[in-house]
């Protein structure tokens, strides 16, 4: 049974993800519990969920500057950013703070 993650998008991020503000996903078995990190999740989201241009979501292996990430309501900068180890039932919020989306 794969990890279940709740994703939320706002501030214009939803426009990149089929205009959905919320989406619960079950990650495939390639995501090993207690090992898989946010660094693995981002490209998976890009390849499987993103409906618009990838450069508006990611830059290199991380999110584009100006996109705020909250993990279970906490600033991802306090959670190790890309190194954060995904847990079952996590809620991850992506908020665009950019003007020109």
């Amino acid at each position: 049974m794969g990890l279940t993650i709740h994703l939320q998008f706002s501030g214009g991020m939803e426009l990149l993800f089929n205009n959905e503000k919320e989406k619960t996903v079950t990650l495939p078995d390639t995501f090993t519990p207690a090992l898989a990190t946010l660094k693995d999740l981002l490209p998976w989201m890009r390849d499987n969920l993103l409906s618009e241009r990838a450069e508006l979501f990611m830059q290199g292996d991380t999110v584009r500057p100006g996109i705020l990430v909250l993990i279970n309501d906490a600033d991802w900068e306090l959670e190790g950013e890309l190194e954060y180890v995904l847990k079952d039932d996590d809620t991850i919020v992506f908020i665009s703070t950019l003007h020109g989306g």
Partner: peptide, 24 residues
């Protein structure tokens, strides 16, 4: 703007995403 986004998230303040001239 990061603080604005965090505050709105913590307080459940809903916003409307309006198109801008340079959107996308």
């Amino acid at each position: 703007s990061k603080e604005v986004a965090v505050y709105n998230q913590y307080t459940d303040l809903d916003t409307v995403v309006m198109p801008a001239l340079t959107t996308a």
